[in-house]
Design a protein around this nucleic acid. Sequence first.
DNA 1: CTGAAAGCGCTTACAG
DNA 2: CTGAAAGCGCTTACAG
Lengths: 345, 345
Amino acid sequence: MKNGKAVTIRDVAKAAGVSVATVSSVLNNRSQTRISAETRERVLKVVKELGYRPRKVAQGLRKGLTYLIGLAIPLQPDQPLSPFFYEAVSGALKVAKERGWMVSILGFKDRDEELSILQKAVNQRLVDGVILFDPQENDPRFPVLKGNLPFVVIGRTDDPEICTVDNDNVEAAKLATQHLIRLGHKRIAFVHVPLSYFTAKDRLEGYKQALKEAGLPFRKELLVEADGYYGVEAGYRAMLSLLERLKERPTAVLAMDDTLALGCIQAAAEKGLKVPTDLAVVGFNGSAFSAHCEPPLTTVRIFAETLAYYAVDMLLRLVRGEVVAPSRVTVPTQLIVRKSCGTMR
Amino acid sequence: MKNGKAVTIRDVAKAAGVSVATVSSVLNNRSQTRISAETRERVLKVVKELGYRPRKVAQGLRKGLTYLIGLAIPLQPDQPLSPFFYEAVSGALKVAKERGWMVSILGFKDRDEELSILQKAVNQRLVDGVILFDPQENDPRFPVLKGNLPFVVIGRTDDPEICTVDNDNVEAAKLATQHLIRLGHKRIAFVHVPLSYFTAKDRLEGYKQALKEAGLPFRKELLVEADGYYGVEAGYRAMLSLLERLKERPTAVLAMDDTLALGCIQAAAEKGLKVPTDLAVVGFNGSAFSAHCEPPLTTVRIFAETLAYYAVDMLLRLVRGEVVAPSRVTVPTQLIVRKSCGTMR
DNA sequence: CTGAAAGCGCTTACAG
DNA sequence: CTGAAAGCGCTTACAG
């Protein structure tokens, strides 16, 4: 087939001396149509000889499918992607491949671009379904997609009709906070992204619950919203502003993400504070680098690959119209204790 | 259109009282067919009202295109992707979007899987073209693709017929080595991936040239091949074995990648060596984390986003049959001096 | 057990 | 200036 015209089902049919319908039936193992063993064998032989494989795009047009699922992922050239999404892509790819689907990255730099890309995906039927990340309250993406394109959200939503895959973020943050409390900390800061994100909301809730159960007061002044969503710089700025603002500084900080935690460590260093002796730090995600920074980061491991695996699995069932009841899957997290949180005070 | 059947070109034609051919001509601005201003306007109005957008997959079948380009990227769940690929995806997405193409990730865990995926891409016409990374000598991927599917390689090849986008890796490694020499180093180790990769070969060449021009001897014992391709662990093991093997230890090390460099720093620490005082370290890539590790890493910045941008641009021209002469594009690099290489000895 | 025909949603010569 | 027809490469009822 090198350099030649691509071989089509027609070529196979001609070479095998049967109709294209027969070739198709053999290849798809249609139960409706019984094919004699010898015909089937002849067809299969020719298929193998010619190296024929049905064109996905042609099957797709006929079946109304693109065999493509889209991952709506933030991609800023300057601000490199969080390892979280890397793992997610990897998990998505895994299921997709198993099921004969492909994964396309729907990259965007802000919410507006994301919305326009999703709208385009709907209009041009670019993909069969979409995976969405980081849901917010009144998420503007849902109305664009609802009823038009199947989608699954990684995270929590307030709309019970939407399929989601999420961690128990309340529990995760609670465990992390309890760990710090057990080490003797009483003033624990919390660095978070905007609370309109359910993930931030849930983790704040877990943080509060842990304090409450330990009989510690919740102090609003120990909360900081990172101004740049995620990222080292954002964490750095958040921690710096916190340290400058507070009369009595915190002895520990729980950061919503490893990159934010890294930024906190930098800010602390700049203020002459040593981690973990002067400031205990705990992050979220358990990204690869978290084990290799200085000091190694205590973190709540989020299994992004697993989240994405389940999400795509669910999405593919939606695409096939298999799921009726909206499902919500919960993936466990895991506290990884390293040096940055220190030991008993 | 919510929940209803998707609107097709037929619907538009009917609503506008014209033929589908006319709608298509209007939408594609065909120069062959002159359409009267009023017809065009009427069609455009209906298109807007109905929110019609031609289905990509249908256009594709007709034009023999998938409007999809594939990025063949290593993806091991356990070993998270290097930031290099992140940036590359981002660059690829940028051009693709500009030109109305989509990007699909062709993930694989080893060379065998990569080959089988590429073969599948050829047979099933999954994509219109492919971007390949990290070329080797006698690269087994080229024969699979050549003549069957357009492709562009990020890196250097020995086959002049293949389109490539690359850095001048000889020059880059030379500049980095010269910098270390200028700081007073005479025993500079080089941690590299297998030399069958052209990138490793070229960087070794630059390293050698710098030594030679400075009148320093090239010592084979200062070379180490990382056993795990890239990654912190691989760098750690490489450096450890080097330190244990050598009687007289190096005062500096050039690592082929930031993750390898990070591993070298860890190994050094374990052996009681301080970076940069006891050991100067220089990496490659300039990944985001390189500015935030301890100490901040001196590194040769590789602009993966730009590499991918040019590669996809070139690939799209190949797909359209525009490029005749095989092209090779070279993207500049940049030495970023931070703390890990230290100062004058 | 197998084939002829219709059709998925477009675009493109070709007529008129 | 515009439309009828063919066709991209498949799959799927439907005949026979």
